[in-house]
Nucleic acid binder design. Structure first.
Lengths: 196, 196, 196, 196
DNA sequence: TATGAATGAGTGTTCATTCAT
DNA sequence: TATGAATGAACACTCATTCAT
């Protein structure tokens, strides 16, 4: 199993995709291996030729979002730019990630506690790194006078909250593009609601 | 059973509290009636002298948050005040609700999809009413020139996100009081990050 | 409990009647002590102030039919008369018993196997005595030339079957009185379907 | 599962047979899935690879008797013959059905009320059709002068009772063949007990 | 690789019965 | 006598997982 041939990779990727859709819709515990097997077109037991456990499926889903998210943050921080520009890029990329991988993102935010303790730690560590990255941008903005002196931690939580909750309501099929949404979010964060 | 005597009410309230704590920690599906029974100090079957089903427990938890939240919104809208003042009050009350009933709020946001279809509808309707109330405040602020012309729907989602995600990270035991947090959130929303 | 005062007797009789109705409608195993308690107007546990067990209720019901049925047979056999006359009396009394105690008869025929082994033996013994009585009438009829020589055992089973199945379909409220039904049954048994 | 291959059919048929035997002996509600599993030689849960529910087992048993019984009636009515001849054929086939499928017949008569409401309706409808067929034979016999004018409904019930109660006492292993029993029953019905 | 069949632990829930009050 | 609360065993059924074929 998982022998690395591209056919195998595709097959496995399909199983993971199917699982992501079901986990997003019914929850991890509300989805049985039989459900997944049925959606893939094989018997539940046959899935074990490709994966080791149900939790592996969850882990693959969670991990794919986690890795992309960390990659995005790393890239943004590596590129020079104003704090506002970096903030805009963080928001945009995050919303784009959620919109392009909606089911996986839903599973990531909603179901990661069903992972093993060890893997939960990895998720927490990754989220911590991400939040630290966000805070570094805020801090720099304040230090350079681009932002007013605000509580970095709380501001970070506010931004994180706005982004992490987006999976609940934002659907990319609607009239609002990710770019437009990101612009509005950043405008709100930078300029606030007060009239100019 | 459930006859409204105060002893019975207390007993039932205790069961609901215990369930809320377990549901918050392990998830609704990850918590068995045996778990709840053990935490209460009785056999699982004995719980059914006080409740009709596991789902009833979830419903009681979800409902208590839902009712308080709607009540808060109704009261805020009924009191006169500036849009900013009302927004501040909404944010404050919501964060206070989450901080004073942390487990119940966690269960509310995380587990309501495990309710019956009918009860899910009631939750959705309640959330819609709440969001509608929030938007009415934003709209008024814009109409009266207190806020700049912003997209009401998106702004509403941004604020809702900030509040709904708070259960994940805000713990009232820390150095930050709810009042302080609310102030910072409202400052961010109104003034933004730009220097004055 | 069961102290023999007439109030106590009445109360117990009421419980037994209620149980008979429920057992007849839902079956012995399909009826819970809670069902009975609810129908009586007390909590399930309170019933145990009057009875020792659920099986006791079944036994009282079964026994009442059994005793009456044996009593009927004894009385019929004690009275002089032709075999046809006695047969008519047996049929009439049996149908009357079923029609006057419909629920109890239903329970008797349908649920006696839920009794303890010992009590089941008593039922079997009673039924055997009853069938033996019936056969003695048939035998006498044959011996005295009133009936043609027929297989006594099979004829007895045929008659028993006709009577024992009546609880399934005969309802005394209809247009047919017990006396009419008994007459028709005896006519059929004696004269058969052939034209005179 | 239940895919119609003959191995699967055999396996399922075995489970149904085992269930019929246990249901006949202990009653439907008195038989647990563990009982059935034990008798089959697997764990209770394993049975669900072959059936959907305990009620399905009951339905299969009841249905098999019901279908055969209706088939018998249809065939008898389709063949020309005297009323007496058809009556004899009905009695014979019915007793043969009970004797060849004793446990299933016992379950059919005793446990059909444990089926779902819908399936109970189907049983009632089937029994109605069967009784209607029987009555049509009696009616024809009367119309053609072969039988005396008797109450068709009551006569039908009498005959049905004789047949439906047979499962209680008739066991084919005894000295009496089904054919002999059928002859004696028809003789009794047609000629009665009176001497010629 | 897939299947059919099984496992064994676990699920929410019901039940007859007990007993202190 | 009745109640409220509990018991402990049982119930039908589901689940992730295993494995011979």
């Amino acid at each position: 199993m998982a022998d690395g041939t591209s056919a195998e990779v595709d097959y496995l990727a399909n199983i993971v995709d199917v699982a992501a859709e079901l986990f997003a819709r019914q929850g991890y515990r509300g989805t049985s291996m039989r459900d997944i097997g049925r959606a893939v077109g094989v018997h539940a037991g046959s899935l074990y030729a490709h994966i080791e456990s149900k939790e592996e499926l969850l882990h693959r889903i969670v991990n794919s979002i986690m890795l992309r998210s960390e990659q995005d943050m790393t890239e943004v921080l590596a590129k020079p730019g104003t704090a506002t520009g970096q903030l805009r890029e963080i928001v945009l990329r995050d919303l784009r990630l959620v919109s392009e991988h909606r089911e996986q993102a839903t599973v990531f935010f909603h179901e990661w506690r069903n992972l093993s303790a060890e893997r939960q730690q990895a998720v927490i560590a990754s989220r911590d790194r991400w939040e630290h990255g966000l805070r570094s941008v805020i801090s720099r903005g304040i230090a350079e006078g681009e932002f007013r002196p605000a509580d970095v931690r709380i501001t970070g939580f506010a931004i994180t909250s706005m982004l992490n909750w987006a999976y609940v309501w934002y659907s990319p099929g609607g009239p609002l593009t990710v770019e437009q949404l990101a612009d509005q979010y950043v405008d709100l964060l930078v300029a606030g609601l007060q009239p100019r």
